[in-house]
């Protein structure tokens, strides 16, 4: 190394600071979310292609408002999109409480962080419960059933091979896409619980900053973001 080159230790090229202005953990969380977006978009592309291809076949792709039109305790009523819109609002609202927790973390206000993290966990559990109900409704199926796939034999609900709604790929894709998203929500709830316990224990007060809330918050908002698109492709289009 020539002495004539003036090394500035604060320059990003010398490792003095992050060129992206974020910590390593947050940058890696972003990279992870990017890779996760690849996975989800591949699933949505599969859904789109399968649905597109089914256009010419004799078994029509079902229309979502004919399949997802149930609401708990309201039997026999045709309520398309009501339940799933409730799920959407639950998830958006839990995203709001998460960002409020991040905001409280920036103020280093432990009780506020704990309170909003608790609300976020409740929101996540509420969403998962709704999804469990939705799945059981989907698998159980309607009382009438349908018989357009098997001669004379009625099918109720759905499994991986047959379903009363339409092509087998419809149920399969419903299970994999909403299941994969639901699994993300579940992991998010587990992470949130860990962070919540740490907040209560005062780990982040000892550490001096609440950056961990921001990292988990990024993940949680991403789950919300994915739901926006799952909702658009699965229930609206």
């Amino acid at each position: 190394m020539s002495e004539s080159v003036a090394l500035n230790p604060n320059s990003a090229w010398n490792g003095g600071k992050s060129p992206f202005g974020v910590s390593y953990g947050k940058l890696m969380m972003w990279v992870f979310l990017l890779s996760d977006a690849f996975t989800f978009s591949s699933l949505l592309v599969t859904y789109g292609c399968n649905r597109y291809l089914s256009g010419g076949s004799e078994i029509k792709w079902p229309h979502p408002d004919k399949v997802f039109n149930h609401f708990p305790f309201l039997h026999g009523m045709d309520l398309p999109l009501v339940f799933v819109s409730m799920m959407t609002f639950i998830l958006i609202f839990s995203s709001v409480t998460m960002v409020l927790a991040v905001e409280a973390g920036a103020r280093k206000h432990r009780n506020d962080v704990a309170f909003y993290m608790f609300l976020t966990i409740i929101g996540g559990i509420a969403f998962l419960s709704c999804q469990a109900w939705e799945w059981s409704q989907f698998i159980t199926g309607s009382h009438e059933g349908s018989s357009f796939l098997v001669d004379g034999q009625k099918i109720h609900g759905a499994n991986l091979f047959l379903n009363e709604y339409g092509p087998a790929a419809f149920a399969g894709l419903f299970f994999i896409v909403t299941g994969f998203h639901g699994f993300h929500v579940l992991s998010g709830v587990v992470l949130n619980v860990i962070i919540y316990v740490n907040v209560i224990k005062g780990t982040y007060d000892k550490r001096g900053h609440y950056e961990m809330i921001e990292k988990v918050g990024l993940y949680w908002h991403f789950v919300d973001l994915v739901w926006v698109f799952v909702f658009t492709f699965f229930y609206l289009i």
Binding site: P19, F20, G21, S95, E214, H221, F222, L225, V228
Partner: peptide
């Protein structure tokens, strides 16, 4: 997604390179 990523995920306020 612009609002979720920009405001909630704070991307609007990060360094442009990120």
């Amino acid at each position: 997604s612009y609002y979720i990523v920009g405001i909630f995920m704070h991307m609007k306020y990060e360094v442009k390179r990120l």
